[in-house]
Design a protein around this nucleic acid. Sequence first.
DNA 1: CGGAACCTTGAGAGTAATCAACCCCCGTGG
DNA 2: CCACGGGGGTTGATTACTCTCAAGGTTCCG
Lengths: 253, 253
Amino acid sequence: MPTADPSAFKTAMLGQKARGRLGDDLRGKDALLATLCTNARAFPAGHQLTIEGDEAAPVLCVIDGWLIQSKSLADGQTLIIDFVLPGDIVSVAAADGATAASQVDALTDVVVATLGTAQWDGMKRDWPALDGLAVRLAAASRARISERMLRLAKGSAPTRIAYALMEMWLRLQAIGRAPAHGFHLPLTQQHLGDFTGLSSVHVCRTMRRLAHDGIIRVENHMDIGIRDLAALARIAGIDPEELSREIAPAPAA
Amino acid sequence: MPTADPSAFKTAMLGQKARGRLGDDLRGKDALLATLCTNARAFPAGHQLTIEGDEAAPVLCVIDGWLIQSKSLADGQTLIIDFVLPGDIVSVAAADGATAASQVDALTDVVVATLGTAQWDGMKRDWPALDGLAVRLAAASRARISERMLRLAKGSAPTRIAYALMEMWLRLQAIGRAPAHGFHLPLTQQHLGDFTGLSSVHVCRTMRRLAHDGIIRVENHMDIGIRDLAALARIAGIDPEELSREIAPAPAA
DNA sequence: CGGAACCTTGAGAGTAATCAACCCCCGTGG
DNA sequence: CCACGGGGGTTGATTACTCTCAAGGTTCCG
């Protein structure tokens, strides 16, 4: 179980070398972090944070670890709507403002700050830049979901897998967590299937083919190496730089 | 081409009989409407309001008519991300805050108020309830997209069609545009296919089967009648009342 | 050593896409 | 008045992609 060490969040949210999502204006950053840490709790991998249709915790700030936002059909078929990474802020409320529109689970051990409406409003008042950040993060999530939905509806299995890999690589890069020669995904092929709308069997086949064709390298359970970025981007149907701008909020200058 | 008559918008946005999305507090409603109408323009069906990747008009308020938000793959395959109905407010900006994450077209003749960032911020300041409304509408859109994405990934053709019909029926009901015995969709089967990720041929087959099974009635190009609501809801995998709460912001009390 | 969780590979089945032809409705213009 | 064309809708035949089922294989851990 992780401790409530905010350094990871600090890096993602506030940036390194005086750059960060909240901008160069350093006033109050430490106080903001302190407020977040006051509300932060650690949860073990697999913990259910919210259940679809239940009363929802309005706002979640991920300080460390990955969350999964998912929805399920009555027969248990599940779709992962989005992954929530360190530095992300999500609101799971549906249109009625009360119930959760999706289920949220801890994929890894996580540290999450849970904020009520009043708290969140107060924080927005104290740190005005926070509102703009939340808006940008929401737009990024929406852009990610739209891109992936397009490929769910109209893309082949290779397109969906290639897109999923590119999306996660770009997001990890944006928060400084993608080493130069590859990246690690804390996922099973079943997760990747629930993310791309494919069966785990077909995920296996498709990734194997991408590896065989020299486009990616796959080692020890989801250490992904990108061997031919141009080919992967072409199969995904994206331009990496453009996609990064649309889906992965970079630390603001 | 429609004129800039705000009455339809007024009904959807402000409600009838002193009820409406902005609540019972009537202060400034007329001024708000006037401001919107100042920025309103009429566009004919088929007009492109924004193109994916272009600089975006930050905020669009639909006063009358339907908009389509869509995305396309390089080979021209298109997915309709969401329909935008009278009374809806959408922001098409991606994470960078500047470019449009999706294309927006006028499905029917429309009247739309186009607001710049400064204007929108000013309006939010003058009518504080507007911000909360925009947040609720965004949550509703997100909930709709999530539900539909789940069915794109894991649902059969009948499930997707039934869900699409239920979604649009509930939305039209929420803005007082669904007559008791059915509703009209200004769509072709091709549109419905782009909305559900099916080919127009398969849309035809699937709707025909639903009609043959006595679940819906289809007349003169998309006049839909619901003959067996329970069956339709079961096929869609939803509970109508619950779904309505999640995806169709009702006029607030 | 056994079990559990996950990955891999093969075979067969089924759903939906594609291709193609035809129909209907409607507006246009000779 | 009718020929024409275009946009949709309908239906059938064929194709192809992905699912499901099934049987190992691997790794890790108690």
